[in-house]
Design a protein around this nucleic acid. Structure first.
Lengths: 229, 229
DNA sequence: GGCGAGTTTTGCGGTAGGACAAGGTTCGCA
DNA sequence: TGCGAACCTTGTCCTACCGCAAAACTCGCC
């Protein structure tokens, strides 16, 4: 009954119906309230998740208690394929930022699916490799680029991922505090606030409490890519 | 004939001899002179590599031409399992920093091995997941920590990876310029130079042209972990 | 042995952006 | 409708770090 959701995941996309049906019928459901955790950093990696409804935050906590956001995700995003590996632990927290629901598979189920459909193991490798490349790009960004450009890219990514058309542009359909953007881009909430204020004066975005709307994607892309304005 | 090398790779470790033999006999050899590239960022990912001799640098070039080093590797390090995936491209450069030799497998060979020995596909997932977690840690580091501590960690990692005992400590057995350390830790060569000079005055390291020797691992660990001195 | 290219050191400004503080705004909830 | 908590803005100060320049060092090679 969840085949349609799975079809929208990059992990399951374009697979034969037989495999989707097998995967969907082997899945269980897990609901979590906004603010609660699907799992914590350091927990044994027991399940593979596909977010079906809601939004969630992937984050790490530094030993000093500072938080770093590795990703903000919406429906049809896959998380925790590491559960396929014996003895693995989750390397980060997955926290629902709104009431959420996910399809989940435990390790034994996952292994059974891999054995019946070896393509799923290759797909898993494909998915993690893709995430790895994305993270490399973010690493390079953090290493070489200024805050303003990192912030521009983060917002463009979020708009592409969970954007919803609004009267005056495209809104990020997810509660998004200045602090979140700061932890996502490796800066401070003050700098985020100043930058957004400047962009708002320039008519590039409109923003408010936990809300950002992109009005002029062209100008923001110019900032992100250092194109001539 | 290369089973021993493979046994030292985390990818192949603890596998039955039959699998090691199958993998080793399917491998080809590739030699590359110091300074030359095994492959470039953007090339079709055609082969999986295991470095047998020499050293190499994994790096990305930003659109503006700035280099970022994602890793410095030595013998028995595996690179490019992404070659198992149809249509993939290498996300970075692999450049030999000294005359080097690698065992390589092309995609078809890799796929054949995966089919005969499904554990190899799972191991691939395991390996990439592990690298992903390491990169996450470096990302968090870059995002939240000061240069001095990032540099301390980078040196400790290199010592652990390719350290060679020397009269006055442990030397990093690989030519390692200030510029390399800067690109590895996301800082400038000047800051690296200043920091190493300060550490040398304090008796923690000894260093010279493209060479670093760690004399006092305890003190450097204290810097890396922010322990009381 | 000495030239020259590449590497490193160190001094000196300049600045992006971090940290703190104080006040304003938004929103849930009683 | 009004209170309180959470969130946002903006000013001021400050410093870690960058970027440049000039000189010193190292080492391969003729």
């Amino acid at each position: 009954m969840h085949q349609d959701l799975l079809r929208r995941c990059t992990y399951f996309t374009d697979l034969p119906d037989a495999i989707l049906t097998a995967a969907a019928s082997a899945a269980q459901l897990r609901r979590v309230q906004g603010g609660e955790f699907f799992f914590h950093q350091g927990d044994p990696a027991s399940h593979f998740y596909v977010l079906a409804e809601g939004n969630a935050r992937l984050s790490q906590i530094t030993p000093e208690g500072r938080q770093v956001i590795m990703g903000l995700i919406g429906p049809s995003h896959e998380i925790g394929i590491i559960a396929a590996i014996v003895g693995a632990i989750y390397p980060l927290d997955l926290q629902a930022t709104q009431d959420s629901m996910a399809l989940i598979w435990d390790r034994a189920t996952l292994r059974t699916l891999f054995e019946s459909h070896p393509v799923l193991a290759l797909r898993a490798l494909h998915m993690v490799s893709g995430r790895f490349v994305e993270l490399q790009d973010r690493y390079r960004e953090l290493s070489t680029e200024r805050v303003e450009r990192r912030l521009a890219r983060a917002i463009l990514r979020l708009v592409a991922q969970v954007g919803r058309p609004a009267s005056d542009g495209v809104t990020i359909a997810m509660p998004l505090a200045r602090q979140d953007l700061a932890e996502l881009t490796g800066t401070s909430l003050f700098t985020v606030s100043r930058t957004l204020s400047a962009w708002e004066d320039a008519g590039i975005v409109r923003s408010g409490r936990e809300r950002v709307t992109l009005c002029d994607p062209g100008r923001l892309t110019a900032i992100a890519e250092d194109l001539p304005v």
